[in-house]
Design a protein around this nucleic acid. Structure first.
Lengths: 168, 168
DNA sequence: TTAAACTTTCAAAACTTTTTGAAAGTTTAA
DNA sequence: TTAAACTTTCAAAAAGTTTTGAAAGTTTAA
């Protein structure tokens, strides 16, 4: 396969994966493009390469900055803004985990805590089934939360060495 | 909070979480409803409770069966089909992980393997940046895959004991 | 057989999300 | 100042996804 085809395929696959996991396809594609670009790119170049509008490019780039996945760069003597992605896969995974934890896991835990407090008659199957499911899911969510907290604070080494060894 | 409000809130939150993670909102809601129902429910009851159409209910129930999250049940002497959800949170997590691994992770690894094979001039920054990103992501994906494989085959105990202890 | 009870299908409609692009806003150099 | 270069905004349009509901299909009991 030619390098150019490979690049296109990478961008396409990354976009597809993103959309399957609730991340806007264009955002994932812009990220993919910057991941494989040796040099920072301008909004213009990104619009051109991915055939997207200026507005879309601008919003997507701001979102990516919000996720901590890319940064702006200024070249001396130039007006244009350049964008580049952090290429360190461990940082990327960490950033994504951190953001989703904050945006999605935390609000869910808040609701589950609230729902765990609901009281009722332990002999009422309606109540006891509700209560058991909610408290079990709450325990799981808190476990995942703790795990992420620990992982995000941990060193990089275990990550590349193989997470899986820990489960053997 | 009243039990009925709490149920509604649980269904709503589960639906929202699902949609943020690329799972159809209705599917997550039907799952939530069955999770907190002590007894199996008919299509009719599900349609009624969630105010959804017969077609939607039918398709969603079949999808949930496809994900291994719910099962059909027949009551002796009745024509209607009843549905109930596995209430074991460990099984649910396992099922979801297993399915997403098969549906999404595996295809991505296949593409990454293919893209890792692309050859080029190591002095060409276009090639070497592409190559580094692709091989790094491939390594990560394979690591995650191995980890899931091990976790899915492992015993339940570590799960409730606290995954996070492993990372301390 | 027949027909009632129930399930499945799928094209069209409703809804949601994403994208566009032109206008407004901002910054910089002269 | 001014105006050119560039960035941001946002209402409307397009695209994508989900839902509906009526019709077709299936199963069962008599």
């Amino acid at each position: 396969m030619e390098l150019e085809d490979a690049k296109r395929k990478f961008i396409e696959s990354w976009g597809k994966l993103g959309s399957e996991w609730g991340i806007n396809r264009t955002m994932a594609q812009v990220h993919a493009l910057l991941l494989i670009s040796p040099d920072p790119l301008t909004t213009e170049e990104i619009m051109e390469t991915l055939s997207i509008s200026r507005g879309n490019a601008n919003m997507t780039l701001r979102d990516l900055i919000g996720w901590g996945l890319i940064e702006k760069q200024h070249k001396p003597g130039e007006r244009k803004e350049y964008f580049f992605a952090d290429k360190d896969v461990w940082n990327i995974a960490k950033q994504v985990a951190k953001e989703r934890r904050k945006r999605e896991l935390e609000p869910v835990i808040k609701v589950l805590d609230e729902l765990s407090k609901v009281t009722g008659d332990a002999n009422d199957p309606e109540f006891s089934t509700f209560n058991k499911s909610v408290t079990d899911i709450n325990k799981l969510a808190k476990n995942v939360d703790k795990t992420l907290e620990t992982m995000l604070g941990a060193e990089e080494s275990w990550f590349w060495g193989g997470i899986f060894k820990l489960f053997k």
